[in-house]
């Protein structure tokens, strides 16, 4: 179990543009940190770097409490691209994500119930609205328990009711010793600490 994620003197370059330089911060167990900054400041790139998908030009990301190889298995990344296939049913996609990330049929079913997806599970993903699709993507966070959630604009397509319920989900995750690192423009419905990117 990860006890803390530490970002040290991280610099990220996209093409010939240096997005940010020498960024330092940490996320501890039971804490939610939000990344703020203008469009194009590098929030999404930072999340991908923490996930290990993007190589920083300098600095490093360390996961305290797990081996470096196990880091990818202890985080969820929820980005703008949700990797949901339009031609598959919501249940097929949720079940695959659960089994692929170390969950089970039961955990997938429980996650679907929490996100109130019951009636939608037999529908093809292409027939879901943007908000329903985002709820299906969020269900993956619960379908396979992993301590670190990397969320890119998680609130965007959700209505006010679901924003509040996502807040409950996040609060429960943090209360259980989980960690959240989220790129946001609107404030999250849970207590957070802010890190400014590309200031």
């Amino acid at each position: 179990m990860i006890s803390r994620v530490v970002v040290e003197t991280l610099s990220i370059r996209r093409g010939d543009r240096l997005l940010f330089d020498g960024l330092d911060f940490g996320v501890s167990a039971g804490e939610a940190v939000v990344l703020t900054g203008r469009n194009g400041a590098g929030k999404t790139s930072l999340l991908r770097a923490v996930a290990g998908l993007l190589r920083p030009v300098a600095g490093r990301v360390t996961f305290e409490g797990v081996d470096a190889e196990a880091a990818a298995g202890s985080l969820h990344l929820l980005g703008h691209l949700d990797g949901l296939k339009g031609g598959r049913t919501a249940w097929e996609e949720l079940r695959f994500a659960a089994l692929w990330c170390g969950g089970s049929d039961d955990s997938a079913r429980a996650a679907a119930a929490t996100l109130d997806l019951g009636r939608l599970l037999d529908l093809e993903v292409r027939k879901l609205s943007a908000g329903q699709r985002r709820r299906l993507a969020l269900a993956r966070l619960l379908a396979a328990p992993r301590p670190l959630w990397l969320l890119d604009e998680p609130l965007a397509p959700l209505d006010s009711v679901w924003r509040a319920r996502l807040g409950d989900m996040m609060a429960a995750h943090i209360a259980g010793g989980g960690m959240i690192l989220a790129a946001v423009h609107d404030p999250l419905p849970v207590p957070t600490r802010a890190v400014e990117v590309g200031a």
Partner: peptide, 15 residues
Amino acid sequence: RDFEDGTLDLLALGP
């Protein structure tokens, strides 16, 4: 397609 729709991210973070 997996690259464009984000599936490759999901797969890369698997076991």
